[in-house]
Amino acid sequence: MQVLYTASARATGDGRDGHVRTSDGTVELDLALPKEMGGAGGAANPEQLFAAGYAACFHSALRVVARQAKADVSGSVVEAEVGIGPNGSGGYGLAVTLVVDLPAVERAAAEQLVDAAHQVCPYSNATRGNVEVTRTVRAAL
C-alpha cells in the first residue's frame, strides 16, 4: 500500500484518564473513563474518538460511491455508535453500529450505496473480521 497521509497522536497521563494531542495540535483533548465504566466521565474517551473518525470516514466513502452511481445523497447523515465490553477471553472488544440517513434515496438503492461504501471505507476495511459492524439504513422509501 502506498501511504498518502499519516496521522500521529500521543497519549499521556493515565491512558483513559489522560490527554491526547495530534502532532500538528489540531486535536487536543483530555480523556476520562466514562461513568458507565466506573470513571468520572466529563471528558472525551477513545470510543468517542473512534466513533467520530468512523462516521466521517464512512460518510466520505458513501459520497464517493454515490458520485460514481450518480445518486443524490444530499442531506445524508452518518452516525457511528461504538460500544466496548468484555470479549470473553480476558480482554475487551468493540461493536459498531453505523446509522446512515439517506433522505433522497429509495431504500433498495440506499442499501446498495451503504454496502458499497462499506467495501471502500478504510475504517470498515480495518475492522472487517475483528469488529462486529451493523449497518442500519434510513431511506426515503
Rank of each mutant, 00 (worst) to 15 (best):
T26V: 15
R67H: 07
H19S: 07
T12P: 06
A11Y: 06
A71F: 03
A52N: 04
Y92G: 12
A80Q: 10
V114K: 05
G39A: 11
A110S: 03
G83S: 12
V120K: 13
A32S: 11
K70R: 14
M37W: 09
F50V: 14
G13I: 08
R128W: 03
H59N: 13
Y5T: 05
G83N: 01
A32Y: 02
A66P: 02
S124K: 09
E106P: 00
T6D: 13
V96I: 14
E111Y: 01
Y54Q: 12
V78H: 07
L62F: 03
A40E: 15
V114G: 08
E79T: 14
V77M: 11
P46I: 06
D101S: 14
V137R: 04
S89Y: 03
L33F: 04
M37E: 09
H19G: 02
G15T: 13
A52K: 08
E36G: 10
T136V: 15
A9I: 09
G53R: 12
A7S: 15
A43K: 13
V77C: 05
V82N: 02
V27N: 05
S124Y: 05
V82G: 05
N87D: 15
L102P: 04
H59Y: 02
V99E: 09
A32N: 07
R128P: 04
G42E: 04
V27Q: 11
T6R: 15
S89K: 15
V27R: 12
V131K: 03
C57E: 05
G88K: 06
L141R: 11
E106R: 03
S60I: 12
A117H: 00
R63F: 01
E132I: 10
P46F: 01
A52D: 03
L113R: 00
V96P: 07
G39R: 08
G15V: 05
D72F: 00
C57H: 07
D14I: 01
R138C: 01
A43R: 13
Y92E: 14
N45S: 12
S124E: 13
Q2T: 12
